[in-house]
Design a protein around this nucleic acid. Structure first.
Length: 799
DNA sequence: CTTAAGAAGGTTTTT
DNA sequence: CCTTCTTAAG
């Protein structure tokens, strides 16, 4: 072999790169190989954008900007030429050394930042990166906006007056906090609800409007002035509590970068390539965040689909994607329009619907998939009948060989899930609901999280107040209010006052209770600081010391077993977290993970059950068969949207998202009458149906309505259905200590026992409750306690 | 301070 | 329809 000319080498390198990514279509490959400079990828639904993202990152790490670079490696030896030939002709991998020779400006994994919106998307991205790149994949910053920002703020938050252990408040915490502020400012919730104040504040933060600025803008508008005051106080209190709400994470991260050139510089140099997924859902603050980081390198790649922008209500501005080209000069735009997901009929229906929108970049998806079934449009009598129809269709589908997990039901609002749930329980159809009452929003979980938070950060007043009387300790509002007042007057934290309650006259009466509470918390803090205590031991300790489980039996009327299951599941999450993070595991880390997690992140596709969720939650997912119940004017599009053209466009995009989730079959279902918020209403079929060409539709209606269906698999017990829904809660693998523990020893009154934390004691009474026994035990050292036998891990003692 | 019962209010979508 | 808050009685 002879020496090659520069252009031959160049040519050879192009061939290698094209070969490397030959599995993609031309557009996709173009996106993968375009590395430097701003890049806008308009990726239609199901066009393989995650694949593109993963491969693009792989390309950057392996070859850098080699494809577009004019710099050509020097002479290639015969051996090297041979290797390349072997690779091109016979797929024999290139030696790493040669890859390095061909690459231009390749960078290390940690120099790449990939931002997504959900943890699930981030997780999936990471998984695929690890699959493709091996361990290197782990070093890529692939995370959500919120966790990226949180990570930065943990590192440098002191510049803004926050500690590195700051707490992240969720909506409920924020609400409580705002209520306090309203009280302090004398704002009547009836005149100006905390909800509307919070939403105004949230909007302000999305647009980087700080309290002072907000006040200025308020002018003479009384309402706005009140909101401005509340905003200011709210922020001050958050800071005192060392806490941030969701919007603060973004907003403060932007402030951090804007006001600290050295920090900005650090990250600008660190991240040579930035990628943002679902760019159409970014708000102004997020846009600034990304822009600041990418300013120096200019290597910003955003992926999005203006037709799938469905979070305007959350501050997302579609302008971010519509104006990307003008904001970042010399943007390369690539459209991915080939759909690999749906049948022709489904895709054509989606195209037909979205075409009616004016505000769009314009693209038409096409597919090589087969034509498939027509789209079913079914009209039912009532919402009962609608649910019935779904159940029947699913059961007959399963009889024909489908799995339950092939079916998804996507609705416009969470409240639609109730009737469906009832019918599914009755027909024995296993199902899972994603969203709605979310796991981390359940009372008992919030309580446990609150305990963990307070242990981690005793300044967290909102959460301290949440648990101070939970379980009931006879510490009432009045006492807490008094303590708060003292704390404010003395400039101390609430916890400090409570800890020394006996020193304050007004607290004298409740001092013993307060001190006892404080000592529990203090012991838990000590346990946390003790290196020998693992997180799950700490968690157990909380349960033990607070008698939380026992208190559920006396105070809750709902299904106690469910609550216990939930508490156990949180334990299993904690253990899982510890296992995954090993030495790195910390309470703070766990709390952060928990506070940024959503239900959809836990969606586990492996279990065989029908899934139900809102259309919003379904973005990014796909299912063989999709039902859209409540496809009616007034529901989808919603009532408020009907006379508002802008809103209608948003609803239409939502419909587009919904339709494009389906791979093989799609059912648009409406009911002629339905109970809605207590009263019956009659809705017309959704206007979006009329936008689909008639020849794609197959219209049916319920002929005669037989009530409960004597069907394939008749009424299974409610127990079985519950077993399915709480399957996750029960199954927590080898690490779940509660359920894998040997069956509890039976105890009776008079038995002497030993408890790990409380020491020796004697059983006073044993009351069977559910599968467990409530024991009242007189301990030698700590007095009488109520414990659940299965949880207490008691040992029998010889008297 | 707790509990229970009654009234009222608010209903889209969520990181 | 549901949850959440208020109120009055224990």
């Amino acid at each position: 072999m002879s020496n090659l000319s520069t252009s031959q080498i160049f040519e050879l390198r192009q061939q290698v790169l094209n070969k490397e990514f030959c599995k993609m279509n031309d557009r996709q490959r173009e996106a993968v190989l375009h590395v430097n400079g701003p890049l806008l990828i308009l990726a239609g639904a199901g066009s393989g954008k995650t694949t593109v993202l993963v491969n693009r990152i792989a390309n950057i790490i392996k070859y850098g900007n080699a494809f577009s670079s004019q710099t050509v490696p020097g002479d290639l030896s015969d051996e090297e030429q041979n290797s390349i030939k072997e690779y091109l002709d016979h797929d024999i991998p290139l030696p790493q050394q040669l890859v390095d020779r061909l690459s231009v400006g390749a960078c290390r994994p940690w120099q790449i930042l990939a931002i997504t919106f959900t943890n699930k998307a981030a997780g999936e991205l990471k998984n695929r990166l690890v699959n493709m790149l091996g361990e290197d994949g782990n070093d890529i910053w692939a995370s959500t906006f919120h966790s990226t920002c949180a990570r930065m703020l943990r590192r440098d938050g002191d510049r803004l007056g926050y500690s590195s252990h700051f707490t992240i408040y969720d909506t409920d915490d924020s609400r409580r906090m705002m209520k306090e502020c309203q009280k302090a400012l004398g704002i009547d919730d009836k005149l100006l609800s905390c909800k509307s104040i919070l939403s105004a504040i949230s909007h302000a933060k999305d647009n980087m409007v700080l309290p002072e600025e907000f006040m200025k803008q308020a002018g003479n508008d009384n309402r706005l002035v009140l909101i401005a005051k509340a905003y200011k106080l709210y922020q001050a209190r958050l800071r005192e509590a060392d806490a941030m709400d969701f919007d603060d994470l973004i907003c403060n991260a932007v402030l951090l970068l804007q006001n600290n050139p050295d920090v900005l510089d650090y990250y600008q140099n660190k991240f040579r390539y930035i990628m943002v997924d679902e760019y159409q859902d970014t708000n102004h603050a997020q846009y600034l965040f990304v822009k600041l980081l990418a300013q120096k390198s200019g290597n910003l790649c955003v992926v999005g689909d203006d037709d799938q922008s469905i979070y305007k209500f959350r501050g997302a501005t579609i302008e971010n994607i519509l104006s990307f080209e003008s904001t970042f000069p010399n943007t390369k735009v690539i459209r991915l329009e080939q759909n690999y997901r749906s049948t022709k009929n489904i895709l054509n229906a989606a195209n037909a619907v979205i075409e009616n929108n004016f505000q769009r970049k314009g693209k038409t998806l096409w597919t090589n998939n087969k034509t498939g079934e027509k789209i079913s449009v079914h009209t039912a009598y009532s919402e009962q009948d609608e649910a019935d129809f779904l159940a029947r269709t699913i059961l007959s589908g399963v009889a024909d060989g489908r799995k339950y997990s092939d079916f998804a039901i996507l609705y416009r609002m969470n409240s639609q899930s109730n009737i469906l749930e009832k019918i599914f329980v009755k027909s024995g159809i296993p199902y899972r609901i994603i969203g709605g009452q979310r796991f981390y929003e359940r009372k008992e979980i919030r309580d446990m999280i609150a305990y963990l938070s307070v242990i981690n950060n005793p300044n967290d007043e909102i959460r301290l107040r949440r648990i101070i009387n939970q379980p009931k300790r006879s510490i009432g509002d009045k006492t807490v209010a008094q303590a708060t007042e003292i704390a404010a007057a003395r400039g101390e934290s609430l916890f400090d006052v409570i800890r020394h309650a006996d020193q304050y006259e007004p607290l004298k009466r409740s001092a013993p209770k307060l001190l006892q509470f404080a000592s529990i918390i203090q012991e838990l803090i000590d346990a946390l600081n003790d290196e020998n205590t693992s997180l799950n031991e700490l968690y157990r300790l909380i349960l033990d010391k607070t008698d939380y489980i026992a208190s559920l039996y006396t105070s809750e009327n709902g299904d106690v077993q469910d609550r216990i299951d939930n508490i156990n599941e949180l334990a299993s999450n904690l253990i899982k977290y510890e296992e995954e993070n090993g030495e790195e595991a910390s309470l703070e880390g766990f709390l952060e993970e928990v506070s940024l997690i959503t239900d959809i992140d836990n969606f586990d596709e492996s279990s065989d059950s029908v899934v139900m969720m809102t259309v919003h939650s379904a973005k990014g997912l796909e299912f063989p068969v999709v039902f859209l119940p409540g496809f009616e004017d007034g529901i989808f599009p919603g009532m408020q949207a009907i006379y508002n053209p802008v809103e209608i466009e948003e609803e239409r995009r939502l419909a587009y998202v919904a339709i494009t989730r389906a791979k093989e079959e799609l059912f648009l279902v409406n009911a002629e009458s339905r109970m809605i918020f207590g009263s019956t209403s009659r809705n017309k079929p959704s206007r979006f149906i009329e936008e689909i060409p008639e020849e794609l539709l197959n219209r049916t209606r319920t002929r005669e309505w037989k009530k409960p269906q004597p069907g394939t698999r008749l009424p299974t017990s409610a127990f079985e259905a519950r077993a399915i829904t709480t399957e996750a809660a029960r199954n927590f693998g080898p690490s779940g200590f509660f359920h894998s523990a040997p069956p509890a020893v039976q105890f009776k009154a008079g038995d002497c026992v030993f408890h790990k934390t409380f020491g020796k004691g004697m059983v006073l009474s044993a009351t069977p409750m559910g599968n467990d026994t409530l024991l009242e035990i007189a301990f030698d050292k700590v007095g009488t306690k109520k414990l659940m036998a299965n949880f207490a891990r008691l040992q029998r003692e010889q008297p």
